[in-house]
Write a protein that binds this DNA or RNA. Sequence first.
DNA 1: CTGAAAGCGCTTACAG
DNA 2: CTGAAAGCGCTTACAG
Lengths: 344, 344
Amino acid sequence: MPTPAKRHRSTGRVTLTDVAHAAGVSPITVSRALRGERAVDPALVERVLAAANKLAYVPDPAARALASQRSNHVAILIPKLSNALFVDLLDAAQQTLRAGGFQALIGVTHYDEGQEEQLLREQLLHRPAGLLITGRDHNAATRTLIARSQVPCVHLMDLPDAGEAKPPYCVGFRQNEAGAALTRRLLATGRKRIAFAGAQLDPRVMQRLYGWRSALQEAGCYEPTLEWLNPASSSLALGGVMFEQIMGQSPAVDAIFFCNDDLAQGALLAALRLKVAVPGRVAVAGFNDLTGSDQMLPPLTTVRTPRARIGEAGATMLLSLMRGEVQARSFVDLGFEIVERGST
Amino acid sequence: MPTPAKRHRSTGRVTLTDVAHAAGVSPITVSRALRGERAVDPALVERVLAAANKLAYVPDPAARALASQRSNHVAILIPKLSNALFVDLLDAAQQTLRAGGFQALIGVTHYDEGQEEQLLREQLLHRPAGLLITGRDHNAATRTLIARSQVPCVHLMDLPDAGEAKPPYCVGFRQNEAGAALTRRLLATGRKRIAFAGAQLDPRVMQRLYGWRSALQEAGCYEPTLEWLNPASSSLALGGVMFEQIMGQSPAVDAIFFCNDDLAQGALLAALRLKVAVPGRVAVAGFNDLTGSDQMLPPLTTVRTPRARIGEAGATMLLSLMRGEVQARSFVDLGFEIVERGST
DNA sequence: CTGAAAGCGCTTACAG
DNA sequence: CTGAAAGCGCTTACAG
């Protein structure tokens, strides 16, 4: 018996229809049973599940995306991979999303709003089911893209302002409070001339700067010459350079608050090289509690930031939003912890 | 005039058909013109391009994937995000792929072959156009999945063995040669009792170990007690612990080759703490030339590995394979460079 | 609670 | 070199 001349493009894949035949129901019922959508007779659900299982059926993401206008991708936008902070954030978020059945699409913005916009446009083509984006500073086009896309979105690291009208979903902590808290701790140990050394100068660094500033102003110790800002990327090498610079030009400084641990680590190494006593001559503090800070000589005082928990909680909130659940609150403040070690 | 009651699910998207209408040709012609596939009248191509441009048409990845059985995703599998080496690899690969129009799907295996297999299965569902995978050690199921999928695949970091029958595509360098070269350099400076301190013990660490071993054997200096292997993850803290251990238990050791820079950095900090003179009492060398190694006290002698270039060259080779181009050779050896600094 | 029909936006295979 | 038809594998919208 000759096979009918069908124009067939069979892929060998087990399809919804195969499962439907095996279970003796229609494809739509299989679709609904598998997604747990609407009410389906429990007996049928069981039969469908058994058939799907037996045939090792896996839904086709592309077909699903085309039909439903929604994929199982989640776009993640972070500024840089060279800062361990964001790697921890990405790692945690990615694992949580995967456990929830979603695939992460990563985009690295390099702290450039234009690139961020471009990346978002590209990722939106994939109809992501959700969006995880670092920070709250985006250009107008990016904000419009997010709003128009209707895609659930959670902002990581930063939080809404106190009285904000329509706050977006956020998971993070208050950078300015952390900056202020660390500064107050330094003041409490008797330091008076506390310099702030910042690099990169992204929005979060600036927040820490404002926190430091307000704490010093409260104490009547603020002076503009204590601010050392460098737009270059944060690194150990730069920390060493800035340390030497500050000590050379502001001999009265008795403490330095570096905006990131890599700078502070570089400063501690420079201090060893230059034989500047830490904390005897000058106290050194960092931010983030990155790898190695507890191993330094002396160990580095710093602010432990919950970036892994931010990644996880942000992804968890997004998973909930993607299920259409109403959120009890629009943001989660995960706080921070000051870790005092030998450098102060 | 009443609109016909069509069951419509319009998405508002500009489609291929819209472009076809605007250009006055059939959708297939648009498809072909846009992909540059087969011969299309140049005049028509121009008209199509103009129309597509005017309408700001962007092809739908899901529809394309469903129809062609191929997406514009590339799956990348790496062992860990906590090792800066792999972050550099990922960063470079991802950028290169993006420039070529592909989206990276990342998977973190945690050095677990089972997880690697599971991740690959998940990613294969997305019908990736290509695959970038770290190393050459995979379980049988993973190897079968790769082969069966027919997806072009490039292995990163390692290279095929000299006389290998059907070598897969690889971009990397010879870990064992790098290990041997560094060891010979240490021997050349007069060191005799050179310990090897390894952590994680993944295939690449073992290759470095073999290189070290063979160099010592050549010189008649090999002794099993010089091998210090710890399966725990590599970290600064572990480096400090291993340093203390080795110095305590093998006082005759005059040099230590750490399998990764983070260990070596931790060792240098421990040496400062313990007041062990480096390189006076003992020389210390690392591997990879990670961030901060040049800032240590003394600066760390190490092997500079071209991981960013491996990521880039691997992605470039994959792009070429995905275009169906024949490769001149199956592997690219990017070599390594020994960086002598103050610690030896 | 279940299903037959239509559709998502592309590309493949077959003709001419 | 160009196109009408069918199909990729799902889900939506409409009925019953």
